Computed example of a mutant assay.
Amino acid sequence: MVGKKYLADQASTLLKFAKATTNADVAARLLDKAADLTAKIDEAPDASPQAPDVEQPQG
């Protein structure tokens, strides 16, 4: 499963392509896909690394 950062980066790239194109149909489809990816961000896990649980030795 992809993380939030990946989805945000992909949506950002699609928005840049939509701004760069002169074809209105292509731009509309890119914007639609970017909106789909943005909507999935809330459902995606946060892929940032987490430290393992560490117990201090007793003694």
Rank of each mutant, 00 (worst) to 15 (best):
L37C: 06
F17I: 12
K5D: 10
D36L: 11
E55T: 10
L14N: 03
A51E: 06
M1F: 04
Q58S: 07
A51R: 03
L15M: 13
L31C: 07
A47M: 01
S12L: 10
V2F: 02
A44F: 06
K4M: 05
L30K: 01
T13I: 01
G59H: 15
T38L: 13
A11F: 10
Q56G: 02
E43T: 08
S12H: 12
A34M: 01
A28Y: 11
D25N: 07
L30V: 00
D42L: 11
D46S: 08
A34L: 00
A39T: 09
A34Y: 00
A28D: 13
A11G: 10
S48G: 08
F17E: 14
A47S: 04
I41R: 05
R29V: 04
G3F: 14
A39P: 00
K16P: 09
S48A: 13
Q50S: 13
M1L: 03
T21N: 02
I41A: 08
Q58G: 00
G3N: 14
A20I: 08
G59I: 09
A8R: 12
M1V: 02
E55L: 11
A39N: 08
T38D: 14
T13V: 08
P52A: 10
L31T: 13
L37Q: 09
T21Y: 02
V54G: 02
A47P: 00
E55Q: 12
D53G: 08
D46K: 07
A24N: 06
L7I: 06
G3I: 11
L7Y: 09
L31D: 07
L15V: 13
I41M: 08
A39M: 06
A27E: 15
Q10E: 11
A8P: 00
P45I: 00
Q50E: 06
E55V: 09
Q50D: 08
N23H: 12
Q56T: 12
Y6A: 12
L31G: 04
L14T: 01
G3K: 11
A27T: 08
Q58L: 07
D36V: 03
Y6E: 10
L30W: 03
D9I: 05
T38I: 14
A35P: 02
D53E: 09
L7E: 10
S12I: 04
A8V: 06
T13A: 09
V2T: 03
D53L: 11
P57G: 10
T22N: 08
A27D: 11
E55M: 11
L14I: 03
S48M: 06
G3D: 15
D9H: 12
K19Q: 15
K5A: 14
M1H: 00
A28G: 12
A20E: 11
A34F: 02
D36Q: 05
T21P: 01
K5H: 09
A47G: 01
G3S: 15
K33Q: 09
P45V: 02
L7T: 05
A18E: 11
D32Q: 14
A20W: 13
Q50H: 03
T13P: 02
V2A: 04
P52I: 04
A18H: 13
A8C: 04
D32I: 09
D53Q: 13
A24I: 08
L7D: 10
